[in-house]
Design a protein around this nucleic acid. Sequence first.
DNA 1: GGAATTTATATAAACTACTGATATAAATTT
DNA 2: AAATTTATATCAGTAGTTTATATAAATTCC
Lengths: 144, 144
Amino acid sequence: MLDVTELTAVLEDLTRMHIRLPVRQRLSFTTLSVLHTLEGRGPMRLTGLTAAEQVTQSAITQLVAKLERDGLVERRPDPSDGRAVLVHVTDAGAAVVRSRRAERVAGLERLAAALTPAERDAIAAALPALARIARAGDEPGGHP
Amino acid sequence: MLDVTELTAVLEDLTRMHIRLPVRQRLSFTTLSVLHTLEGRGPMRLTGLTAAEQVTQSAITQLVAKLERDGLVERRPDPSDGRAVLVHVTDAGAAVVRSRRAERVAGLERLAAALTPAERDAIAAALPALARIARAGDEPGGHP
DNA sequence: GGAATTTATATAAACTACTGATATAAATTT
DNA sequence: AAATTTATATCAGTAGTTTATATAAATTCC
């Protein structure tokens, strides 16, 4: 039987570990999360990003402006709505996400190497279910 | 076989989900992490917290000062070293950690309820291994 | 055993990432 | 077409950082 309290505790620890994994380029959590969201879902409006990231629309406008200055995203007009903006990741932006992931993979390789084969198998078997949880929590209306 | 790249991707998603889980009382990530660390490891010096949280010593000094003003920690002299300070969590501080965890448990209950029994079993079976990874990554020298 | 160095914390100034309130312009409703 | 709603922008203020520097206790080195 799955003990959700225990799952929560483990997720807390994993989250802290994951965030503290040292990386070369320092980027704010929301910055990285926006790039990640755009890569996963394709071009989005500021409104969509605001909902996905759970910060204010003001914060997203300012963050996207900075990301555009840095060349990591592009803002294009939305042909279907003259008020709206569609934010696209650039190749440079995608590269940032990829390189950050590569650093984290390297860190986790080290930690996973210390596990027994049985432990690694157990994690492998749980990944699809964990991915489902993450996806559900990430969905629009996932945690209303 | 465990695919660490996939594990990394899942952890990224879980981390984002976990951080975005809505909660009543808004506390910064580092604030909560410090309380969590103190609860898990017992009283610590500022130096120890600095290493654990991977922010500057200055940030920890200021954060602990604020936490003390808010009654969530106490600073006591270290009998073995006149320069040092031992930071203790108060009952109020521990309560903050507990109530935050309770909110997260509630959020995860909802998400876990959508899984199949087999998926829940798979996660339950992987928890010890995931906890080991988290602990290793959290340890002093865990990711040098 | 005292001078030099290192270690533990504190403080000041500047900077970044946000929030909240408000403005503007395009779309939608009436 | 006037009124309302929606999508984004701007502005001012705040919280949480960093960098650089200061101070005092502990340790090291003759």
